[in-house]
């Protein structure tokens, strides 16, 4: 045992009981207990949505959703991993779509079954107002749906819980795609920069860098201007 003995808590993983340090995340606690992640682990930084998990805490009926790599364990937690939620990969040609309600209905007609029960919002580990963006899509409000679903990492917890069998993250994805293509329009500053590059405005600078030796490059890198 080390100098800093952390407090231990009891958790159950897939029904099996384990004693784990209280300050670990679910993912680290599961690995501490001997699980090897073949599925359901990715960036380990709360960004990729691979490690979706569901849990209950002893004494509460509440079913909660979380990202295993972010959520710290609690004493009496009963955990199940949700490594995958089944959802069809629906393909569409974005250039042929219109940013309106019937586009959503064509590819995801099940959004009409939304009960506004808010179960999806309760399951979301990113605190997104999932019900609100599904409702916005049903109204054809592409911009609102894109704005509200911005933080979505497609972990799938909403889809697993939805009683109307909607896959909200796919709907949000379509909304964001429609929004950026048809509502926000092309990113002028990027297109302008591409034009400048193609016109050869940066050719001289690039040639200079290519001709520099390692030390010059290192100096230039370390003393570069950093805009935060």
């Amino acid at each position: 045992m080390g100098k800093n003995e952390s407090e231990m808590v009891t958790i159950h993983v897939m029904g099996k009981k384990h004693e784990v340090p209280a300050d670990l995340t679910i993912m680290k606690a599961m690995e501490y207990a001997g699980h090897q992640f073949r599925r359901g682990a990715g960036c380990r930084g709360g960004y990729c949505g691979a490690c979706a998990a569901m849990y209950r805490v002893k004494g509460s009926y509440k079913l909660q959703g979380a990202l295993a790599c972010q959520k710290i364990v609690e004493d009496g937690m009963y955990i199940a991993q949700i490594p995958f939620s089944p959802a069809e990969k629906i393909t569409y040609d974005l250039s042929e779509l219109r940013p309106d309600a019937n586009t959503f209905l064509e590819y995801y007609p099940e959004i009409s079954r939304c009960l506004s029960c808010n179960t999806c919002t309760k399951a979301c580990p990113q605190d997104i107002q999932v019900m609100d963006y599904v409702q916005a899509s049903l109204r054809g409000d592409v911009e609102e749906a894109a704005k509200l679903s911005f933080d979505c990492i497609s972990c799938g917890l909403c889809a697993v819980r939805c009683p109307a069998e909607i896959v909200p993250y796919n709907v949000g994805q379509l909304a964001r795609r429609l929004n950026s293509r048809y509502v926000m329009g092309p990113t002028e500053h990027v297109l302008k920069r591409v034009e400048e590059v193609e016109a050869g405005e940066f050719d001289a600078d690039i040639d200079e860098l290519k001709a520099s030796d390692k030390k010059t490059l290192q100096d230039r890198y370390e003393n570069r201007e950093v805009k935060l």
Partner: peptide
């Protein structure tokens, strides 16, 4: 699905 208004599909379901 492109033709039907939401109200029709919602009430049908």
């Amino acid at each position: 699905l492109r033709e039907l208004p939401q109200i029709a599909i919602i009430s049908n379901q």
